[in-house]
Design a protein around this nucleic acid. Structure first.
Lengths: 161, 161
DNA sequence: TTAAATACTTGAATTTGTCAACGATCGCGA
DNA sequence: TCGCGATCGTTGACAAATTCAAGTATTTAA
């Protein structure tokens, strides 16, 4: 992971000497840079939190969407998550192999697979959510409840429009 | 790249039918998810903006830090950007090959290379910054100046602490 | 009924990230 | 001063992730 990439290394938001020193650079004031850094830290923490369940963030997200009442198709998920359809295949394969989600051919269009979470999947999801909440709390511990709401609102506006 | 990964695909914040439909899922309210999505959109836009200059975001960030008066070492950059030291080697190689940065052995410790931007590098950086500002403006166009400041402040607090 | 388009899958190619090992250098303590 | 362990940058091998093109099945539209 890296601030500028997508991996997930390092011990999360550790403030090393170098980090402190370089954080006064102009780049550290750019919103895009901060977004990338915050995301990196968040993903590292989230992946750590999910590890006991044998999940990664991507699986968690797909499981969560499968468990919603939106019954998303694979194409919809690919679009929503901005992933290549083939990346979803392996993600769903992994979830399905453990009996947590099911591909269900759509009754309207037999090309389409709709995703459903199984009862076991929903149970895992509940545990995963608890782990995620804890990790998120860790990442956002400096922010008050109000500030978190503010942040959520601002991010939502730039994420969906 | 995807919301859950680090690549840079898709045409940025396009609101497809599927995206709109799935954005009502519970996951779309989680800050970590929104951070990931916002970053993805931002990186896509930024990479597009930098393409005419033959730069990617990672090069831009390193160039920007090299041009600061902090004269960072490679190790410091690796720590700050949470990258493997070897990833910095290739990034700096690329920048140095074009004459935009220089490795300068530190006078205090000859193991250490300190980075400096050349005049040509600073010139490119200026252009890159203009392109980035434009892209950022595109990403954040729904936010007022005040709101951008708010967002910057909140992100800074969760990114550095 | 056919042709084009879409959904999912597969596998190969490319890119990216991870890791261990190396030479050079530093710092510490004997 | 000498020598040992640690650090910095680099290299190259390995693993993982992303990207892309092609294939099958199915739908839609002509």
């Amino acid at each position: 992971m890296g601030t500028i990439t997508s991996n997930a290394r390092g011990s999360a938001a550790e403030s090393s000497e170098a980090t402190r020193r370089l954080s006064s650079a102009p780049i550290a004031d750019e919103i895009e840079f901060l977004l990338a850094r915050a995301r990196t830290i968040g993903i590292i923490r989230a992946n750590q939190a999910l590890e006991p369940l044998g999940l990664k963030v991507r699986h968690y997200v797909v499981l969560s969407l499968a468990a919603s009442d939106l019954t998303p198709s694979q194409r919809e998920l690919a679009e929503f998550l901005q992933l290549d359809p083939s990346q979803l295949v392996s993600t769903i394969d992994a979830l399905e192999a453990r009996g947590w989600v099911e591909r269900k051919p759509s009754s309207e269009d037999r090309r389409v697979n709709v995703l459903n979470a199984t009862p076991a999947g929903q149970q895992v999801l509940t545990q995963a959510q608890e782990a995620i909440v804890e990790a998120e709390d860790d990442s956002l511990c400096d922010l008050s409840v109000d500030e978190r709401e503010q942040l959520r609102g601002l991010l939502k506006r730039i994420s969906f429009r």
